[in-house]
């Protein structure tokens, strides 16, 4: 029933380096995420969470196994196909990674410019709408340097979601934020995702936000433990 699954990972392995220095960090990963599902992945540092996220996002190329994202197989895909695959996803990073020379509005519209199908005025209109949805209508023309950490992360969310991606990949989006803004940011992500019906895969160490998840998966030493009990014990 792959049609209902927006992410299907099957027997995925991944190693860094080659020869004697080769080090396997992911072992036989199997994971299916349904469309519209919010999945949180936790686990100790160095267990391979970020690596899995970058593989799913097409930021690095998968070597063995199978990796289907919204129906497209990206194992062994060409660089050109990977670039196109990336456009289907929204990314939210620990650091906001906004462009310092662009205003909040211009940063958000970059998420549309990459699609290459909308004219500038329309891009700006939608970006402004999106910023209003994350509660920043007063700040559209601010540069990142003039925004607080929580506001910057909200701009980053707006940038990730403005093109209505099918999948949002987030890596510790609240790590750099205080408790209150961290909560706000996660709530906004949750609400918008539910509204747009997009799938979220979120890596976090932050126990306070686990409640937004439909499902929690646990990564340890490069292996995924899906059983809820195990995940619960891990907590």
């Amino acid at each position: 029933m792959t049609q209902n699954h927006s992410i299907v990972v099957h027997q995925l392995n991944h190693s860094f380096g080659s020869g004697n220095l080769q080090k396997q960090v992911l072992f036989d990963i199997n994971l299916e995420i349904s469309a519209g599902e919010i999945v949180i992945m936790t686990g100790p540092s160095g267990s391979g969470k970020t690596t899995l996220l970058t593989l799913i996002g097409g930021l690095r190329s998968a070597q063995t196994g199978s990796l289907k994202v919204v129906g497209h197989e990206i194992t062994g895909a060409s660089e050109n196909d990977l670039v196109k695959a990336r456009r289907n996803n929204g990314y939210i990073f620990q650091a906001h990674n906004l462009h310092g020379s662009l205003t909040a509005l211009e940063n958000v519209q970059m998420g549309l410019e990459v699609q290459g199908n909308l004219a500038k005025p329309e891009r700006h209109r939608r970006a402004a709408e999106m910023l209003a949805q994350v509660g920043l209508e007063e700040r559209v023309n601010y540069y990142p340097a003039d925004l607080s950490g929580g506001q910057k992360q909200r701009v980053a969310i707006a940038r990730a979601l403005v093109s209505r991606p099918k999948i949002v990949l987030a890596d510790e989006p609240t790590a750099a934020l205080d408790k209150k803004s961290g909560r706000d940011v996660v709530d906004i992500m949750h609400d918008l995702a539910k509204q747009q019906g997009c799938t979220i895969l979120l890596v976090t160490h932050d126990n306070r936000i686990l409640d937004i998840a439909d499902r929690i998966v646990y990564m340890e030493d490069g292996r995924l433990l899906k059983q809820p009990e195990l995940a619960a014990i891990a907590q």
Binding site: V83, R87, Y91, N97, M110, V114, Q115, R159
Partner: peptide, 12 residues
């Protein structure tokens, strides 16, 4: 960092 982000977003 910003350029890497752009590439992650799908810019060529």
């Amino acid at each position: 960092g910003e350029y890497a982000t752009f590439r992650a977003m799908g810019f060529r």
